[in-house]
Write a protein that binds this DNA or RNA. Structure first.
Length: 105
DNA sequence: CAACCGGCCTGGA
DNA sequence: CTCCAGGCCGGTT
């Protein structure tokens, strides 16, 4: 367990777990994995080849702003809007309410 | 082994 | 109180 090779795999699992119309943060994921590798999470998503399978676009920064995206931040915002999430000024509206916490591990 | 990264936090101006 | 910069953690390549 805890083998690093599984790390990206867990990230994908959590991201896929996010219901429609909701988002999550790198921090939340890292915390859910009981780690502080925020960067590793984003990095894993970036290298993610199952971008269409995994909704990396549902993962945003902890302050509600759009993080990065392999296809571009605009594309990410566009996708979020498509999920019913309002993005204004490059930030998510009612981010806290849209934020899905992995409920303490 | 070294560098990079889609972030987060804290400190200083 | 707001804005900018640097430092830091863990993983991947």
């Amino acid at each position: 367990m805890m083998r690093t090779g599984d790390f990206p795999n867990r990230v994908y699992m959590l991201v896929r777990k996010v219901p429609y119309g909701k988002v999550t943060t790198y921090k939340a994921i890292a915390k859910a994995l009981n780690t502080k590798a925020y960067r590793a999470v984003g990095n894993a998503l970036n290298k993610n080849k199952n971008i269409e399978l995994v909704k990396c676009c549902k993962v945003v920064k902890s302050d509600g702003s759009i993080g990065g995206y392999s296809e571009g931040t605009e594309e990410k915002a566009k996708r979020l809007k498509k999920e019913g999430i309002q993005v204004k000024g490059g930030k998510i509206v009612d981010f806290q309410k849209r934020l899905l916490r992995f409920n303490n591990k």
